[in-house]
């Protein structure tokens, strides 16, 4: 497992324990007491550290290159996955994956952003940042689901829509906007799971669901903390500070009633124990899908509308002194 900067002290400690162990084995000196003490201390540090991760540390975990991707989860959570391709208009954007699959025996449509596993894969998949054809591919899959009355499960994991000239030429804005409007009108259950990074409009274009769930260390925001820091303070190195201020963690978003549920992660992040992670996501999807399957088409549309309709904080300013109040 490759370590993140904040995990270094912990790993240093682990290495020290290993060293002591080999020393005691090799030289026959008994360090068992020290080793036991260090191991306790190590566990203690580990527990507190992962329990109290800062927003910036979660951001590092969410972007971890070994973190499972949409395809990893799709293949592990669902059965009989049939991957489908193309938007029927221009191309097959590999930054979006999706198709048909079964969840507990029920046919569903799955769609997700797909990051690459290595450099070559990342280049082919534009680092998980879709072009308009990607959003239109996702839309096509979802329209199909709506037609055949299949629930839709989306996996969100992108830094954002691809910022390129060809993306602009083909209508990046329109593609995202259309997805938002169309998703609002589908008469089937939609469950969205933010598994890594939920970056801006490119994430939201798969995110208009009845239920939006987030993995414990996933993040979701209007702009990346790096971008915010460079715009606000003209200093991209203050990304950690921006991450804290922007309320990007699952816990923050649950409090703000943007998401419905947090899916817990194995200690140290999803990449540490794939099986445990797959199980907890499956349980969460099962719970929410069971509830949503009780609703009629109209109820699902209304439920989704109300979920987003209520988001926002505002106030009515006081009338200025001396002004007549009607």
């Amino acid at each position: 497992m490759s370590e993140l900067p904040f995990e270094k002290p912990l790993n240093d400690m682990r290495n020290k324990i290993k060293e002591l162990k080999s020393l005691s084995d090799g030289k026959g000196i008994d360090f068992s007491e020290e080793i036991a003490r260090l191991e306790d201390r190590c566990k203690e540090i580990e527990d507190t550290m992962y329990r109290e991760l800062t927003a910036a540390q979660k951001m590092q975990l969410a972007r971890h290159h070994q973190r499972p991707t949409s395809l990893d989860f799709i293949q592990a959570i669902f059965t009989d996955f049939i991957e489908l391709h193309g938007d029927r208009l221009f191309a097959d954007d590999l930054a979006i994956v999706g198709g048909l699959a079964k969840f507990n025996g029920i046919p569903v449509t799955v769609v997700g952003h797909q990051r690459g596993k290595d450099t070559r894969d990342n280049i082919a998949r534009f680092f998980g940042s879709p072009h308009p054809e990607g959003f239109r591919k996702a839309l096509r899959f979802m329209q199909q689901a709506n037609k055949f009355k299949r629930p839709i499960i989306t996996f969100i994991d992108t830094k954002g829509a691809y910022p390129g000239n060809t993306a602009e030429e083909r209508g990046q804005s329109e593609a995202i906007a259309r997805n938002l409007r169309e998703m609002a009108g589908f008469g089937v259950p939609i469950i969205c799971v933010v598994i890594g990074e939920g970056g801006s409009g490119g994430a939201l274009a798969l995110g208009v669901g009845n239920r939006v769930l987030m993995l414990e260390n996933a993040i979701y925001s209007a702009i990346s903390p790096n971008g915010a820091a460079s715009i606000l303070w003209k200093d991209a190195t203050r990304a950690d500070e921006a991450a804290e201020a922007m309320k990007i963690t699952a816990k923050d978003l649950l409090e703000l009633e943007i998401i419905e549920d947090i899916i817990s992660e194995p200690q140290g992040g999803a990449h540490r124990d794939m099986d445990a992670q797959v199980e907890s996501i499956s349980i969460a999807i099962d719970k929410h899908l069971t509830e949503l399957l009780q609703m009629s088409s109209d109820e699902l549309i209304e439920d989704r509308y109300l979920k987003f309709r209520k988001i926002g904080y505002y106030t009515m300013a006081q009338q200025e002194a001396g002004q007549a109040v009607e």
Binding site: R181, S200, V208, A228, F308, R309
Partner: peptide
């Protein structure tokens, strides 16, 4: 930016109203 995720969600809210 200063309203972060709440701002982002206004995109969905306005688009849903248009739907």
């Amino acid at each position: 930016m200063q309203e972060s995720i709440l701002s982002l969600m206004q995109m969905a809210k306005t688009s849903a109203a248009l739907a």
